[in-house]
Amino acid sequence: MTAAPAIEAGGSAAAIRHHYDVGNDFYSAWLDPTMAYSCAMWDGLPDDAPLEEAQHRKLRYHSESIGAAPGMRVLDVGCGWGAQMRTLIDDFGVSSCTGLTLSEEQAAFVRANNGPEIAVESTNWHEYSPAMPFDGIVSIGAFEHFAHPEQSQEERRALYRRFFESCLSWTEGRGRLSLQTIAYGSIDAGKANPFITTDIFPAAELPTLEDIVVASQGLYRIVRLRDDAQDYARTCELWAKRLRQAAARGEAGGDAELIDRYYRYLRLSAAGFSMRRIVLLRLRFDPIPRTTRPPR
């Protein structure tokens, strides 16, 4: 998730780095040991299950969603610190993963903590061209970065469509895609609450579910859709608590302004999800075979 400044189409490196390159040590102070910086999943777990367990649940969910199996090659668009790729390899026997991230710190972390089965590239997805096709794609918490508020709805949807077309081409039209993204919920419904509106996501432009449906139409079938906003509210609450506790122990670094900013941001985000002004979508896409795809 992000409160990144204005980003160019596809998410500029500068915007991503602004948010994510504040230091791996800072994030590791309050993220769980998987370093997953995206919504966890309590489905099938008790409400008070620890964050780490719920993050593993989420990582397994996306692995199952793409039908992860031994021998597969998987692409992770927006790989963060690599937790999803590790799960795919360790728990599902996937033979290799490639992660894309624009954060140099994340890329360095992934390289330092993994073997040759995991490759990481500091490349924007819209410039990416793999040497070999993949069997499946996972993308968690990256879609939020793709568009910016200056774009029209039409431009945003065209950009999203380009992403879905790219996914199809990276898998030669055969692989599934498991996508997790924040989306606008009731932001347009009823009167705006000034507490929880633009301050959460000041510049990145979130998609709506409708944007995603329209942009993927004819390319992918949406075969599963979940809205787990409550999971994200809980995740943000737990992160906020962990951040405050780490700061109290002097383990979150010495930048009090940074700690304060993130703490507020996490508390605000938790409320935004609880009030469903923003929601958390998890979607499984199955490619529509080329032969049955309608002409464009």
């Binding site: 507490f195 301050d199 508390r267």
Partner: peptide
């Protein structure tokens, strides 16, 4: 309600804390 005093989200979260 809080809204009628024009408190923004940052002031709101600071008030909560």
């Amino acid at each position: 309600d809080f809204e009628s005093f024009g408190i923004d989200s940052v002031q709101g979260v600071d008030m909560l804390v």
